[in-house]
């Protein structure tokens, strides 16, 4: 019940900055979106090629980000930023999984995703899926993606939503982050979720 109360008071608490809407509410440094979006749910393909579900990550704090590996700028900046935050968290970092969902399954094979995410740390997991599976997940979190036309070499750019969603151990949506949030703020909020 307290949980619901918080959700409905998000707007009010924004207006009354500094006034705690619910007793005992956490002092988040990124954006609290508790109750604003549905719980984490998906069926995708893992780095090993196996089918994987959101429930497989139950018990971990999940950080969800969409991208593609042929993205040499924004995606590694974002993942590197998250890696820097995790490095400051000590043992708590082991309770976090960063789910990097590639919206470019044509080029991003499970093997390539594994190599790519391993470059950022053991908590980074690469996932992808069929267009149908990806559309379902991106619609669920109101994230868009689209493909540019191929150039003379057959390469194409992918436009993708840049929001970072954070889910608690139970899979409830909790925070919205972006890569301009300081690593300290990201680490602070992830630690709170790990220790809830």
């Amino acid at each position: 019940m307290t949980f619901r109360c918080c959700a409905s008071l998000v707007a009010a608490s924004l207006l009354l900055a500094g006034l705690a809407a619910c007793s005992g509410s956490a002092q988040w440094r990124t954006t609290d979106i508790t109750g604003v979006m549905p719980d984490l749910a998906f069926t995708l393909t893992s780095e090993t090629g196996a089918t994987v579900h959101a429930d497989d990550f139950r018990g971990k704090v999940k950080v969800l980000f969409f991208g593609y590996t042929h993205c040499p700028d924004i995606c590694p900046i974002t993942l590197g930023h998250l890696a820097a935050a995790l490095r400051t968290m000590g043992a708590d970092a082991k309770q976090v999984r960063v789910l990097f969902v590639s919206v470019d399954p044509k080029r991003d094979t499970p093997a390539l995703l594994e190599k790519y995410t391993d470059a950022f740390g053991p908590q980074f997991v690469g996932l992808t899926g069929t267009q149908e599976q990806l559309r379902e997940l991106t619609k669920r979190y109101r994230v868009a993606y689209s493909y540019g036309p191929p150039d003379e070499n057959g390469n194409y750019l992918v436009n993708h939503g840049s929001a970072i969603f954070v889910f608690d151990r139970q899979g409830h949506v909790r925070l919205l982050m972006n890569r301009s949030d300081p690593t300290k703020a990201i680490a602070h909020d992830l630690e709170l979720l790990v220790n809830e």
Binding site: M37, G67, C71, D73, I74, Y141, R142, V143, A144, G148, D151, L157, N159, H160, G161, S162, A163, I164, F165, L176, N178
Partner: peptide, 14 residues
Amino acid sequence: GMDHMMGGMSHMKH
């Protein structure tokens, strides 16, 4: 047409 979206959209230009 992007009012329904969460966060921004990353885009690259050649």
